[in-house]
């Protein structure tokens, strides 16, 4: 089967319920905004292929339900994701405080080298803001994670957030490939050795090397 892309990246959106994960994804995949969304039930996903430094990168983005009930289900997807967006709502203090819990969740369930990014969404609602941009930045520095404020409604920074995360994954992956495959060997076995933390290393790394 002919592939229409060079890389496939799996990304995950997590955060408290109602922070706008689905809206962010809808903005990125359809370039639209809808004030009333159906609550995400369990898990959902969207796909968009972007062009990154001349390579076609297919992003498979998983959108998770915020309801506590689905936590056991959604953490099962952490392991397979290469990048995680942690989303909070700048008008909801609690959702910001919970970012720390979400990070702990990632540390317990995702592979150690997963790329992360923190998004402070709904930054268009300046009058209702409870979390300043500085506090977001501070938290990001503390955990050494990139941070950006977004507005799915006004289409602010959503595009650049996904591009940044994808670019970071790509850079990390190419670096790793170089290190493990200096002679450009095509054998999957070498890559498994270099990426033991990845549970299913052959599923995406071998694909990348075949291109």
């Amino acid at each position: 089967m002919a592939k229409t892309y060079d890389y496939l990246f799996k990304l995950l959106l997590i955060g408290d319920s109602g922070v706008g994960k689905t809206s962010i994804l809808f903005r990125f995949s359809e370039d639209a905004f809808n004030i009333s969304f159906i609550s995400t039930i369990g898990i959902d996903f969207k796909i968009r292929t972007i062009d990154l430094d001349g390579k076609k990168v297919k992003l498979q983005i998983w959108d998770t339900a915020g309801q506590e009930r689905f936590r056991t289900i959604t953490t099962a997807y952490y392991r397979g994701s290469m990048g995680i967006m942690l989303v909070y709502d700048v008008t909801n203090e609690k959702s910001f405080e919970n970012i720390k819990n979400w990070i702990r969740n990632i540390e317990e369930n995702a592979s150690a080298d997963v790329e992360k990014m923190i998004l402070g969404n709904k930054c268009d609602l300046e009058a209702k803001r409870q979390v300043s941009k500085e506090r977001g930045e501070q938290l990001a520095v503390e955990y050494q994670i990139k941070f950006i404020e977004t507005s799915a409604k006004d289409s602010l920074n959503v595009e650049s957030a996904f591009y940044t995360l994808a670019r970071d994954i790509k850079a990390k992956m190419e670096k790793k490939q170089e290190a493990s495959n200096p002679a450009g060997a095509r054998s999957g076995a070498h890559q498994i050795r270099a990426n033991e933390q990845q549970r299913k290393p052959t599923s995406w790394l071998s694909r990348c090397s075949l291109l």
Binding site: L8, I41, G42, I43, Q60, I73
Partner: peptide
């Protein structure tokens, strides 16, 4: 398999809502 799609991403809510959505 070819597209490396985890089936439950698509089907979980079929089961959760008994196809209502």
């Amino acid at each position: 398999n070819a597209h490396d799609i985890e089936l439950s991403l698509i089907t979980m809510h079929w089961f959760l809502t008994l196809y209502a959505n």
